[in-house]
Design a protein around this nucleic acid. Sequence first.
DNA 1: TGTGGATTGAGATGAATTCTCAATATGTAA
DNA 2: TTACATATTGAGAATTCATCTCAATCCACA
Lengths: 148, 148
Amino acid sequence: MADAREKQRFLQFLRDRGQRVTSERLTLFDEIFSLHGHIDAEQLLASMTNRGLKISRATVYRNLELLVECGLARKQRLGQSRFLYEHVHSGQQHDHLVCTGCGRVVEFVSPGIAALQSEICRAHGFMPKYHSLQISGVCNQCAGQAGG
Amino acid sequence: MADAREKQRFLQFLRDRGQRVTSERLTLFDEIFSLHGHIDAEQLLASMTNRGLKISRATVYRNLELLVECGLARKQRLGQSRFLYEHVHSGQQHDHLVCTGCGRVVEFVSPGIAALQSEICRAHGFMPKYHSLQISGVCNQCAGQAGG
DNA sequence: TGTGGATTGAGATGAATTCTCAATATGTAA
DNA sequence: TTACATATTGAGAATTCATCTCAATCCACA
């Protein structure tokens, strides 16, 4: 199991806060760690329901929040509408390029930007917790179609 | 009038798209350019209503969208709930530091980050249109209260 | 295995935004 | 100026996404 370390972290997190390990929480964990890329709560619910798993909308929302607090999921608005979630491995944070034409999302990592962010926080007396950098633009495929 | 250039741009934008110059559009333009910082649609509506100006909620929402398309306003979620708007002068873009404690928003400009963003776009074949960088953290005032 | 209390599920509720469509105002051409 | 075609507006309904309520259920621990 590739996500054993993360699952341990989740279980420990629950124990530390005196919260229970329910089948719904485990189901949601498995689901979000089995999927790649960004997904919203509604899709996650549908995906589990389709696979015959029983979980309610309210529980999906509640426990996504829990995964975010635990640091195992990231919650962001990449478009303009729903929140999107993605699982997080204890590794490097990434940011997003979003194509306004086709909606394609490209992830990138920039240590340089990260360093500048730390510097800015220091300068303003902020202790950074998390950040969200999103660049919207047109990918060259879409630019090609528009041009020709 | 300090915003003459921007108003001209707005009028030209409307003409170019064959859209009409209505008193409501001008009212909204004046309102958002007279205010500084970030404001949501509801506050904007209340502010105009209080000053005895007549405009409806639907029209505020519709025409804020128009200003965004024109590039004269920026629309962002800085907290988790409403969209916030701010007027844009044809100048330097800025980004935001948001305190998760008190909600305070600090604007900053980082040419270094801007340069790295351009580079990243080039590397991925993207033509950047706009971006949104938001760093959430705790300001030193809030950190002090929490600590002491 | 029993028990207290955390968690769940179904649907009500809430908040923000968008939609509908009749009434009105704008731009254009005579 | 006037008339006209149609873009825009306003009031409130509708929609969307998310959260809340509370009785039923399940988990953790003795």
